[in-house]
C-alpha cells in the first residue's frame, strides 16, 4: 500500500475495522458508538459491516460500559469500550483501577482482562472545564493499566492494533484536537514497537520529552529554536506504560539538558514523574535542572484565548530553552 493522506480519526477507524475483521471477539461498546458512529466519528459506519451485536450502543452510564467490558473480557471477548471523554474517568475508576487492573493479580494469573478503553482528552475545542482535561496521570498512577497516547495517525493505527493483542487492560487516550489532523502515511509500513519512544527530531543541545498533541507543539518550538541555532531533540513517548526511559536517558545523556512538555497540569503529573526519573537516571550528565512545561493548575476555560493560555504553547518552550542555553 502506498502512502496516502489519512486523518487521525480515519486511522483509528481503520484500526478498529481491521481488528474486527481479523478477530471476531473484538466488540465495541459505548455511548452512540453504533448507529451514530461515535461522538467524534471514529466508529462511523462500522455497524454496517459488523452489526449491532458487535457495536453495542449503551445507555448513558459509564460504569455500566466499563463494567460490562471487564466482564466480557474475562469471559472471552476482547471489548473496546469507549469513554466519550476522559473527564468521565472518575465514574469508572473503580471498574478500572480496582477490577480491570487487579484481576490478573488477584486470581494468581489464571485470568486476565484483555480490553481497551478508548477515550479522548485535551483542549482545543472550547469544550469547557469538564470536557477538556488531560487525566493520564490518574491512569499512569495505577499499576496494571497500560497507557497509550498516540500523536500521529500512524501511531494511532498501530498502537490501537497492538493494544488489541495485549493480554491486559489498555487505556488508549486520543486527543480531540488531533482527530481532523491529516498525515501522509502508509499504514502498512511498520512503526516503532509498542513501548518504544520515537525521536521525532534529532538535536544535540536539549531534549524535549513529550507525547500526544504536545509532540507537535514541541516540534514547532524546535523548528523555531533551530533558526536561532539551537538544536532541540524531540522525543515522542507514544506509550506512558510501558515507559521507555532508555531512549529518554540516552538522549539526555547526550544533550545534558531536558525539558518535559505535557498538556496535563503541572502539579503531581506525568511531567513530574518524567522529571524525577530523568533526574535520577541522568544526574551526572545534567547541565541544568530538568524543567517541566505543563498545563496551568486551573480548570480549562471555554474562551479560546484563555483555553490556549492554559496549556503550553511554542513561545514558552522557546523562551525556556533559550534561557537554559543563554542564547
Amino acid at each position: 500500500m502506498a502512502a496516502q493522506e489519512i486523518t487521525y480519526r480515519d486511522a483509528l477507524r481503520q484500526a478498529l475495522d481491521d481488528a474486527m475483521r481479523d478477530d471476531e471477539t473484538v466488540v465495541v461498546i459505548g455511548e452512540e458508538v453504533g448507529r451514530y458512529g461515535g461522538a467524534y466519528g471514529v466508529t462511523k459506519d462500522l455497524i454496517a459491516s459488523y452489526g449491532e451485536e458487535r457495536l453495542i450502543d449503551t445507555p448513558i452510564s459509564e460504569p455500566a460500559i466499563i463494567g460490562a467490558a471487564v466482564g466480557a473480557a474475562m469471559t472471552g471477548l476482547r471489548p473496546v469500550a469507549e469513554l466519550m471523554y476522559v473527564d468521565f474517568l472518575g465514574l469508572v475508576m473503580d471498574q478500572l483501577a480496582n477490577q480491570a487492573a487487579k484481576i490478573r493479580y488477584m486470581f494468581g494469573g489464571q485470568i486476565g482482562v484483555p480490553m481497551v478503553v478508548r477515550t479522548q482528552g485535551g483542549t482545543g475545542r472550547s469544550a469547557g472545564a469538564q470536557h477538556s482535561q488531560s487525566l493520564e496521570a490518574w491512569v499512569m498512577h495505577t499499576p496494571g493499566l497500560r497507557l497509550a497516547m498516540p500523536a500521529t495517525a500512524a501511531d494511532a493505527y498501530h498502537l490501537l492494533r497492538h493494544a488489541l493483542t495485549l493480554p491486559d487492560p489498555v487505556v488508549f487516550i486520543e486527543h480531540k484536537a488531533l482527530y481532523a489532523r491529516k498525515e501522509r502515511t502508509d499504514l502498512a509500513a511498520p512503526v516503532a514497537p509498542w513501548g518504544q519512544a520515537t525521536i521525532r527530531r534529532a538535536g544535540s543541545d536539549v531534549t524535549l520529552v513529550t507525547y500526544s498533541r504536545m509532540v507537535f507543539t514541541a516540534l514547532e518550538a524546535a523548528a523555531a529554536l533551530a533558526e536561532r541555532g539551537i538544536a532541540a531533540e524531540v522525543i515522542d513517548l507514544r506509550t506512558l506504560n510501558p515507559l521507555d526511559m532508555a531512549t529518554v536517558a540516552a538522549s539526555v545523556r547526550r544533550t545534558g539538558r531536558a525539558v518535559v512538555v505535557t498538556e496535563s497540569c503541572l502539579t503531581g503529573g506525568v511531567a513530574a514523574e518524567l522529571a524525577a526519573r530523568i533526574g535520577e537516571e541522568c544526574f551526572d550528565y545534567l547541565e541544568d535542572p530538568v524543567i517541566r512545561i505543563a498545563g496551568e493548575d486551573v480548570p480549562i476555560p471555554v474562551s479560546p484565548a484563555l483555553e490556549s493560555a492554559a496549556i503550553p504553547q511554542p513561545p514558552v518552550i522557546i523562551s525556556v530553552v533559550q534561557r537554559m542555553l543563554r542564547r
Binding site: F283, D284, Y285, L286, E287, D288
Partner: peptide, 11 residues
C-alpha cells in the same frame, strides 16, 4: 557554601 556547579561539571 559548596561551589555552584552543574552535576555534569561535578562529575
Amino acid at each position: 557554601e559548596r561551589p555552584r556547579a552543574t552535576p555534569l561539571a561535578r562529575r
